[in-house]
Structure formats: C-alpha cells, structure tokens
Design a protein around this nucleic acid. Structure first.
Lengths: 164, 164
DNA sequence: TGAATTAGTCAAGTAAGGTTGACTAATTAC
DNA sequence: GTAATTAGTCAACCTTACTTGACTAATTCA
C-alpha cells in the first residue's frame, strides 16, 4: 500500500472532506456567534470583564431567585465554583443575594434591576443579531434553520448517536 | 416602573425569548456535536487522552509536512504553545517531525501513517454522524442547513455584524 | 564575513475554570 | 433533644491552554 500521507488521491479526498463538512460549519458558526454575543452582552451591561462563564449562569437564575446550591446542581459544577462566579457577578452589580425566608442558611440569588434590564437588553441584542441574519439570509432560510436545529438538538440530546 | 424582576409579563417575555432563540440552538447543537466528534476521534485513534486542543492542530497540518512556526502562525498562538501540543501528539504516535531539507533549523510536522489513517477514519466517522443526521432530519433539511450555515459563516466572518 | 533574523527549545508564569476537604451555622429527621 | 443533613464559605490545589523571556543553532542580508 502507498503511504496515505503522500498519496495525492488521499490528499484530495481529505481536502474535499474538510471543505464540505456541515459539522465544521456548525462549529465555526457557533464559535463566531458566541464571540459576537459575548461582545454584545459586555456592551449592553457595560462590563468588558464579563466572561462566557458568567453568561452561562444567567439562564439558570429564576426571576424569583435561586439558591446557589441549586445553580450548582443545574450547571453540574461544584457549589464552590458557582460561589466564585456569583461573587464576581455581585461585584459587577448584576446579581444580589437576599435572605431566603424559607431557610435561614440559604440565600436567594436574584438579578438586580440593572442585571435584569441588562439581560433583557442583551437578549434583545441577540434578537438583533438574529434579525440581521434574517435580513442577510432570508426569512425562509432562518425558519428552516430554526426547525432543523431544533430537530438536531433533540436528536443529539436523545443519545441516539452516542450508541454507535 | 415596576421592578422587571418580579413583573410576570417581563418574566414571560424572558422565557419566550430563551425558548425561541436560533442562536441558543446553534450554541447548543454545536457543543453537543463537538463532544460527539471528540469522542469519536478518541475512539478512532484509540486515544482517550486526545483533547480538543490536539484536534484543532490537525486541519493545519499539510500532508507534505508543515513547520511548527507556520502552524503557530495559522492557529494564531505562540510557537511554544504549538510545540507542546506537538510533543503530546508525537507521544501519541499521531505525528512525527522530519528534517526540513530546505532549512537546517526547521523540522516538518507530518502525520504518521497511523495518524493519517486515523484522521481519515475520524473524518469518515464525522461523515457517519452527518449521515445519521441526514437519516433523521431528511436530505433536503441537511442540504438547506449546509447552504444556510455556509452563508451564515460568510456573514459572520465578513465582520458585517460586528460594526453595530 | 559579520550582523541581523529565524526555527525551535527550555523554563517560568498566568488566567480561567474548575476540584476537594474542612469548617460553621441552620435545619430536618427521628 | 440529639444526630444527621444541608447551605454556604474558606483555603488549597489542579488541569488546560495558553503567554513571555531567554537561549542555541542555522540561515539570510548587505
């Protein structure tokens, strides 16, 4: 057998596969979109030091408040790790910790007014990104994309592809 | 103004936006796909210790060999950082360093036979993932997805959305 | 031919994003 | 009422994925 490394046919096949992959496009666009979103969130909250890790806490905070141990459970990381992120977010003025009336040991993590407004603004900005995409790609493409990603998400989450 | 944190309308709006976002789906599916791909690459090369950072070097290695400084330039990281990744990949038996006939200081990073075959296998496995997705989502959906992601990639890479 | 540049290595340091273990204070289970 | 559990903090440590600075050896510039 010819060494695959120097076989031109092999090389061409490799190049072709690299180019075409839907998966690589998925990675790439997700990374670019992620960077864009973080930049916009930093802008909306006026917090240039906001990191992706901070952002990842947000969707787990219920608006009535959530205990840090519950956040840790939802995010599947230790309560100590969550604690540090919350310290920083508190320092940013984005969240606050209030006494939990139901339990003297516990404290409820809540958005501050600033944080809640900022998050809403951030989400609006994300919608803005989507609107811009829709403008460039067309409404039908975006609807198809949404539908397909929703199914893809279900497929990946189901574990049907892990078994192979 | 009512505090947004406790306004039920505000909350409903937040929830609705969280659900609907194409962007969040994009992040999520990309992350899941990434995890799946790494797992398959680890399987194909029989290297459970292979990390995403190692994988990120692969597409930059030309089959005729590439200098580590060139890899660093392409990946936009320091040559020292690349060097360490290459040390590990060499330890795994995936790449080798050969003398560069054109320059006595330089060495060409190349795939070993094992690495090249593994990479091809890995790419075939990625294609396998795509095939499975196609089976589940339908051929037309996958074609549309591909087309849309290609355009989205160009849009994001162009910087047209960064200016806002 | 000498000076400046370049390829790669060695060593140390850094920041992010965690982990584990030990502890206090409050709560719940019996 | 006491024992076991739970919420949260403090401190130390770990890995990943880098960075910077200093160095050697080979090459290119003038």
């Amino acid at each position: 057998m010819v060494s695959p490394t120097y076989n031109p046919q092999f090389r061409a096949e490799l190049d072709r596969r690299k180019q075409q992959s839907v998966l690589q496009l998925l990675f790439r666009t997700a990374r670019l979109t992620n960077e864009l979103s973080l930049a916009r969130a930093q802008g909306a909250l006026k917090l240039p030091n906001l990191r992706a890790a901070h952002l990842s806490v947000f969707p787990h905070i219920d608006l009535e408040g959530t205990r840090s141990t519950e956040l840790a459970r939802r995010m599947d990381i230790s309560k100590q790790a969550v604690g540090q992120l919350l310290d920083e977010l508190e320092g940013f003025g984005v969240i606050q910790r209030a006494k939990d009336p139901a339990d003297g040991r516990a404290r409820l993590v809540q958005f501050t007014e600033r944080g809640a407004l900022g998050m809403l603004t951030g989400l609006k900005l994300l919608e803005g990104v989507e609107d811009q995409m829709t403008t460039h790609l067309g409404k039908k493409s975006m609807q198809d994309l949404h539908r397909t990603l929703l199914k893809l998400d279900q497929l990946l989450s189901s574990g049907a592809l892990r078994g192979e």
